[in-house]
């Protein structure tokens, strides 16, 4: 026996494994050529139990992550557009085989989660789901930030009233100043006790009015801050309301939506096979 024949005889396992790999790659190539997306997913899951939980591809194709997800993404996007039209998806700028999933197509829509193309899993933002579940329990017209909104509105009302009184205060201050001037002019050097008391009272009033007037810039700043804070709370409430409306347009409640998302992998593959 030659050396070559000896090596072939002694290493049947190696040759079998290489044959299997060639066969696997051939099947994958054929599935891709024929656009059999379901079959591609099945092949990618072969010998790789961890894939369904969003880990990694079989080692033999692990360097094809980008290309495989580019191939698989359009069909999955089509599925989302058809079955979950209230979600907007954009390729993630940080992870190559994932898409950022947003709820709605409105101004500053919030990210609901991240979709992994290869594992067909959508991981949801837990905080957002918790907020939506809290919102759905509220009566119509109520919101999570309702009490904060009421409190800030009260603050704003007070601040505006303070600023609105400025004209009145300015006039009052002028009157006090005029009275003080008159007092000085008429009784210069000849104060009796009553005049002295009057002067002291007027001076105190002037000091108080001037101190109050000095607070105006601070109050104006505070008003702007409060209005911005109010807007932020109202915006959060408005976003949650729209998000909830979108989910409830298709599901009976948020929990049903979450349950459906957890079954995304199986539902999508079934859908592909039926299609």
């Amino acid at each position: 026996m030659t050396n070559q024949e000896t090596q072939t005889t002694l290493q049947p396992d190696l040759l079998n494994r290489i044959d299997n790999k060639i066969l696997y790659l051939g099947q994958l190539q054929l599935a891709i050529t024929k656009q059999h997306v379901a079959e591609v997913y099945e092949l990618l899951a072969t010998n790789n139990d961890s894939l369904s939980s969003g880990q990694q591809l079989p080692l033999i194709v692990s360097d094809l992550t980008d290309e495989l997800s580019d191939f698989l993404a359009p069909e999955l996007m089509h599925f989302f557009a058809e079955k979950l039209p209230f979600l907007s998806l954009t390729p993630s700028s940080t992870i190559s085989d994932t898409y950022d999933v947003f709820l709605g197509d409105w101004w500053h829509h919030r990210q609901l989660g991240t979709l992994n193309i290869l594992s067909i899993t959508l991981s949801l933002e837990k905080q957002m789901i918790t907020e939506l579940q809290a919102t759905e329990k509220l009566s119509e017209g109520q919101s999570i930030n309702e009490s904060k909104v009421q409190e800030i509105n009260e603050n704003i009302k007070g601040l505006k009233a303070f600023l609105a009184d400025n004209t009145k205060r300015t006039l009052e201050l002028q009157v006090v100043k005029d009275q003080l001037t008159e007092l000085s002019a008429n009784k210069s050097g000849l104060f009796n006790r009553n005049d002295k008391n009057t002067r002291e009272a007027l001076e105190k009033k002037r000091e108080l009015l001037e101190a109050t007037q000095k607070r105006i810039p601070e109050v104006e700043r505070k008003l702007v801050d409060q209005e911005n804070e109010l807007l932020a709370y109202e915006k959060d409430d408005a976003l949650r309301q729209l998000e909830l409306q979108a989910i409830l347009s298709q599901y009976s409640n948020v929990a049903a939506f979450v349950a459906a998302i957890s079954q995304l992998h199986d539902v999508y593959l079934d859908n592909l096979k039926k299609g």
Binding site: W106, W107, H108, H109, L231, E234, K235, A238, Q241, L242
Partner: peptide, 20 residues
């Protein structure tokens, strides 16, 4: 951004949606 936030909130209160 706060100006468009304001439009979003004002519109939402009357059931209109400011979309991207």
């Amino acid at each position: 951004s706060v100006v468009l936030d304001s439009l979003f909130v004002t519109a939402a209160k009357q059931q209109f949606v400011l979309k991207r």
